[in-house]
Design a protein around this nucleic acid. Structure first.
Length: 880
RNA sequence: GGGAGCAUAGCUCAGCUGGUUCAGAGCACCUGCCUUACAAGCAGGGGGUCCUUGGUUCGAAUCCAUGUGCUCCCACCA
């Protein structure tokens, strides 16, 4: 069979993924094995794969595939999030393109369009994950708006309402004037914006004087209800008990005093506008001031403003400044940099707005969730996030859970004509409840709340609802077999940005409904940035086309590229060279495979060097395997991969294969071949979690698997680390040193690698390695000697001396130079050691083992110096 | 403004509780090789006052303090 010199991933990957799917290798059902579970952080249903997903899901796949090969019943549950605001925004935009305005549609009509859109575009991202090789149990795919999952959301709402934790209230919310919805604090992005600070003069009632206030928002003066001054501000003591007039509308408002106002900002006078500023709102509450809301939901001034009615708030600002200026109320305007909130979804400037919303009381339910993390039941990786988590959970604020949208789970509250409401699962239940409270009521008088719940109010149930939605809102339910088997899950892999609004809340819900945290470990990935350190995003256009990338470098190559540079919690700076490295590694594996396939196997005796090489490699293999296991235990995935990479490339290819490789056309003995196949297969198994496709492809070919046999590497056991011979690994390090010395000698002297040398050793060289050395360093013989051989180049490796006769190629001066440099270094080294050992405080204070090792250094260095001095003396005599 | 973290080779990072892991790895770089597995490769090689300044100690990349620079989170004085 012809095997190409370059690995071609495209054909292999599609074929193997289909093969895996057809055979249900990813599927998991409860059985007697130990479960290993991951639920995917559900991507937005209409989203497309970006770098962050790629990294995130690669890590999940590595963990799942490894667990599967460790004999666990591994289950990775995929799914998507309905992402109410993002998706609704997309649907609205799409409809607008078709000339349809959302305002003209009924709720039912809009939802029909939205579902159509979801059916058409939803799940593309899951198809993209398949290209990456994600080994999810696709039968279990869930969507946060599936019927049962939506029901879980409603039940949860009702449960929390009945517990007295959900309440309705007027609050200052972050209002997105474009999306016409409240957004959570977490969805507001603050940016520094260049604006102006306007100084406006407010006439004092009954006096021919005025005071000056400073504001960045002159368009809100009509909503002012007071002017506030710090009581300690001596400049304004005479203002006690006075009133001022709002310019242009001439409305009288009181002057109040509160220490909240800072004396050194602006003029020390603050206009109080409770409806349009959160701090002013607090002040207003404190002093019982009225609230005048002059901005409507779309960001335009309403009739309460009296002037500029119908103008957009930013147009109104420009116009009112002119009006104030014309009427001589504008004292001055200065440039000012202030931080303004923008909506993460629509990029509209957030308007602080009073509105009637639903809230969840967080204080009490957050406590247990904090404890899980503090006492280590839930481990954050890396644990530096523990502090941030605690800080947030200790200062948690009530969660505004209503959104003025249609795409999502509608709030199960029904209003009666008198404005009161009942909370119930269905209109029938609501009717029954309403009848109990108020006798004469007709069903058609009930009106359901128009809002939906925040998306996170459904995704916080995710680890429960993907298995058994019926326990959400019903902690008394026992839960189905799936839930009881797979929950709590093991690892969660997600981004630190959503630690609070997703991870923390999942812990809360898990505790509330199951009394257990939903996962044991939270692996927090970094943010993928470009080479300039900018976050990869669609708007910047700095994210490569991922499907293109996979097509070009192969999924395995991309996975390796991503993983190599991503330690947990650290941002990763993406560079194409990493993916190239991944691709090159695939090719290296492929070519090692080609080499094995090219050999002729014969029943001939096994050479000594081959037996020795196998012995050494097994030791090296187990040593590295232990490192890999340790790294996985600590979630150091990039380091686990690097260890496997070096094991394969350096130890297996550069040393092992080079040793056992027969001369061209010569056969390989059967026992060496068998041992090598075994080694190679084990290496493939170690690499499989990182590089599923190429390892499967090669494994299937090596084992002559027929398609109908339905075999796969992914269900074979991972090799387990065995005890290994440390001595042989140590000795081999010295062999490597010798090899490097001999090769360097050739290079320095411009001698062809084809020319072989004799090597003489003075010291206790283990001759059982002679065969290996001869092969790798191209030596014709290795012999012990006690006699000095003339015209040799010498070097030290360990404490042994090695000589290579070079005949007339020797350059005594060069040799002398080399030896003198070494001598100088050794002497310097010795003097440092001697200084240490000469220090009484060191000898008495340092641990015995440290002192002993210094003594060993001392004697080694001394003998080394002796050898070097002898050799130098000898060469100098010869040279004369 | 409050909190957290980071600073080690050109780049990305290891370096656990201070002493052989005498400053490490991968990539990049330089030199020589088209050596029948692999030029997506092979062989060899050069790169670091471990951010500054102090302190603790027999001994500091490692612990403490100060300064500088950067990152993130939280809050948002109009």
């Amino acid at each position: 069979m012809e095997i190409t010199a370059k690995y071609n991933p495209v054909e292999v990957e599609d074929r193997l993924y289909s093969y895996w799917m057809e055979n249900g290798f990813f599927d998991s059902d409860p059985d007697e094995r130990q479960p290993y579970t991951i639920v995917i952080p559900p991507p937005n249903v209409t989203g497309v794969l970006h770098m962050g997903h790629m990294l995130n899901n690669t890590i999940q796949d590595v963990l799942v595939r490894r667990a599967r090969m460790l004999g666990k019943n591994a289950c990775w549950v995929p799914g998507t999030d309905h992402a109410s605001i993002a998706t609704e925004a997309k649907v609205v935009a799409k409809l607008r393109e078709q000339g349809i305005s959302k305002d003209r549609l009924s709720r039912g009509e809009f939802m029909k369009y939205a579902w159509e859109w979801k059916e058409k575009h939803g799940g593309i991202i899951l198809e993209q994950l398949k290209k990456l090789g994600a080994s999810c149990d696709w039968r279990r795919t869930r969507f946060t708006m599936d019927e049962k999952l939506s029901e879980a959301v409603i039940d949860t709402f009702i449960y929390l309402y009945n517990k007295g934790l959900v309440y309705r209230g007027v609050r200052m919310v972050n209002w997105d004037t474009a999306g016409k919805t409240a957004v959570s604090d977490e969805e507001v992005i603050h940016k520094d914006v260049n604006s102006k600070l306007y100084y406006l003069s407010y006439p004092i009632v009954g006096e021919n004087a005025s005071i000056t206030i400073a504001t960045t928002r002159p368009e809100t003066i009509m909503a002012d209800v007071a002017v506030c001054i710090n009581p300690n501000d001596e400049r304004y003591v005479q203002m006690q008990g006075k009133k001022v007039l709002i310019p242009l509308i001439n409305k009288e408002i009181p002057v109040i005093f509160d220490e909240y106002v800072s004396m050194d900002f602006g003029t020390g006078c603050l206009k109080v506008t409770p409806a349009h500023d959160i701090n002013d709102y607090m002040l207003g509450m404190k002093y019982n001031l009225p609230v005048i809301d002059i901005i409507s939901n779309d960001g335009r001034l309403n009739e309460k403003a009296q002037i500029l009615v119908g103008e957009d708030r930013f147009d109104a600002r420009k116009k009112i400044v002119k009006m104030l200026d014309d009427a001589d109320f504008l004292v001055r305007a200065e440039d000012y940099k202030s931080s303004v909130g923008f909506s993460e979804r629509t990029d509209a400037v957030i308007e602080p707005k009073l509105s009637m919303q639903w809230f969840l009381k967080m204080e009490n339910i957050a406590k247990p969730a904090l404890d899980y993390v503090l006492n280590g039941d839930v481990k954050l990786i890396p644990d530096k996030f523990k502090n941030t988590y605690r800080h947030w959970m200790e200062n948690v604020r009530d969660w505004c859970i209503s959104r003025q949208l249609w795409w999502g789970q509608r709030i199960p509250a029904w209003y009666l004509p008198d404005g009161s409401f009942v909370v119930a699962k269905t209109v029938d239940e609501a009717f029954t409840l309403a009848q109990k409270k108020y006798c004469n009521i007709n069903m058609d008088e009930l009106h359901q709340d128009e809002d939906v719940v925040d998306t996170w109010f459904s995704s916080w149930l995710w680890p429960l609802s993907v298995f058994d939605p019926s326990v959400c809102g019903h902690p008394e339910n026992k839960g189905n077999d799936d839930l009881n088997y797979y929950y709590p899950t093991n690892d969660l892999v997600t981004a630190p940005e959503i630690l609070f609004f997703w991870v923390a809340r999942m812990i809360i819900a898990g505790h509330e409904f199951r009394g257990k945290a939903p996962f044991s470990n939270v692996y927090l990935t970094g943010i993928v940035r470009d080479k300039l350190g900018r976050k990869m995003s669609k708007s910047l256009g700095n994210s490569p086309d991922l499907l293109e990338l996979i097509a070009q470098y192969g999924a395995d190559g991309v996975r390796v590229g991503m993983l190599l540079c991503s330690s947990a919690g650290n941002d990763i700076l993406y560079d194409n060279s990493q993916v190239e490295q991944g691709r090159n590694f695939c090719n290296k594996i492929w070519n090692a495979f080609r080499l094995l396939k090219s050999w002729n196997i014969e029943e001939i005796p096994q050479p000594d060097y081959a037996a020795k090489a196998i012995e050494w490699f097994n030791s090296q293999f187990n040593k590295t395997l232990k490192e890999i296991y340790d790294n996985f235990d600590k979630y150091r995935i990039s380091e686990a991969l690097m260890a496997a990479y070096k094991l394969f490339w350096d130890d297996f290819c550069a040393y092992y294969l080079e040793i056992i490789k027969p001369a061209y056309g010569s056969p390989v003995d059967k026992s060496t071949y068998t041992a090598t196949l075994k080694i190679f297969e084990n290496l493939l198994k170690i690499l499989h979690p990182f590089m599923p496709f190429i390892t499967e492809e090669i494994w299937l070919i090596l084992n002559n698997c027929k398609k109908e046999e339905r075999k796969t590497i992914m269900l074979t056991p991972q090799p387990k680390p065995c005890a290994f011979d440390e001595k042989i690994a140590e000795t081999f390090e010295q062999i490597k040193e010798i090899i490097i010395n001999v090769r360097a000698l050739r290079q320095n002297k411009n001698i062809s690698p084809k020319q072989s040398f004799d090597l003489f050793v003075k010291g206790d060289f283990d001759l059982s390695f002679a065969g290996i050395l001869m092969k790798l360093a191209n030596l014709s013989q290795i012999a012990r000697t006690e006699n000095i051989i003339e015209n040799t180049s010498s070097f030290l490796a360990g404490t042994n001396e090695y000589y290579i006769p070079l005949g007339n190629k020797i350059n005594i001066n060069e040799e002398l130079e080399k030896l003198k440099n070494e001598l100088e270094y050794a002497k310097g080294f010795l003097s440092v050691v001697n200084k240490k050992l000469g220090n009484d405080k060191f000898v008495s204070g340092a641990p015995a083992s440290v002192v002993a090792s210094e003594r060993k250094k001392q004697s080694d260095a001394e003998s080394k110096i002796k050898i070097l001095e002898e050799n130098i003396a000898r060469l100098q005599i010869n040279n004369i």
